[in-house]
Design a protein around this nucleic acid. Structure first.
Length: 259
DNA sequence: CCTATCTCCTGTAGGC
DNA sequence: TGCCTACAGGAGATAG
């Protein structure tokens, strides 16, 4: 569910609500997720002030006054809820009376994990045509798999990669190494546009409650989606039967507009 | 190193 | 209605 725009939206809410306040207690939910955060790590944060709420790719980073960080990843179904409790609470902490809940039905989310190696942020100056061209050269994997590879560029998932490829007129299954510098230029440009729009609209909420921000508010990007999950593209062409599995994910594309 | 495949889990939509 | 299957915003592990 959560890709860069959704995580960034969550980050902004948490920054506004939690920054400058102290973590006073925590609780690990009963059915532990993948790897529950070690208690020693969490104990060291009690009484510490949250000095910053950051983001790298799809990871959230709470920085504490004691020089430590608490890193979280929402996985597919993770949600952070302020002042509430969900049916799948994995982890919870209190910041001077404010309850912060990590809710995650599918349990692919993580708390207290480490940051992996990342490619550049899509909205940074470092992510440009030259960089992408060099990163993709000699790669035979589908371009869409490369865009979702966090080591190539950090933050894109199925929705935004799908939308960007449509906007660039490139089929998701095209071999990444076959892209020209000009195509990389176009692709970088539309990725920045799509991601920036996603952030501006507060992410995408495709189903009723799949993604909601920490205050329960839905995003607005789903109204701008051109191909993802649609039967007819924004271009007016039928997308029926133009689904293809790439890197284990269904990929939609327009057979007319994308080459 | 690179690529493709499998896997972790639960909820829900859609077909019969 | 009710059951069964397929698939879902991610990404780490692993085999070739």
């Amino acid at each position: 569910m959560p890709e860069l725009p959704e995580v960034e939206t969550v980050r902004r809410v948490l920054e506004e609500r939690l920054k400058g306040r102290k973590l006073t207690s925590y609780e690990i939910g009963r059915p532990t997720f993948y790897r529950p955060p070690p208690r020693a790590q969490l104990d060291a944060l009690i009484g510490a002030t949250i000095v910053a709420v950051g983001r790298r790719g799809k990871y959230l980073i709470l920085s504490f006054s004691v020089g430590r960080e608490l890193i979280m990843h929402l996985g597919m179904s993770g949600r952070i809820i302020l002042g509430g409790k969900g049916p799948h609470t994995r982890f919870q902490f209190t910041v001077e009376g404010e309850v912060v809940t990590f809710n995650d039905a599918r349990r692919f989310g993580r708390v207290g994990c480490e940051l992996p190696e990342f490619g550049p942020e899509p909205l940074s100056a470092e992510f440009d045509a030259r960089y992408l061209f060099m990163a993709l050269r000699k790669r035979k994997a589908p371009i869409k798999a490369m865009l979702m590879d966090q080591a190539v560029v950090a933050g894109l998932g199925n929705i935004y990669a799908t939308e960007a490829l449509f906007a660039a007129g490139i089929r998701p299954g095209k071999a990444a190494g076959g892209l020209t510098l000009a195509q990389c230029e176009k692709l970088v440009s539309v990725i920045k546009t799509v991601i920036a729009l996603g952030v501006e609209l507060g992410g995408s909420t495709l189903d009723d409650s799949a993604y909601l921000d920490p205050l329960g508010r839905p995003g607005g990007f789903q109204k701008q989606v051109a191909v993802y999950g649609r039967k007819t593209g924004a271009c007016g062409h039928s997308l029926k039967a133009t689904r293809q599995m790439i890197a284990g994910r269904t990929s939609m594309y327009c057979p007319v507009c994308q080459k």
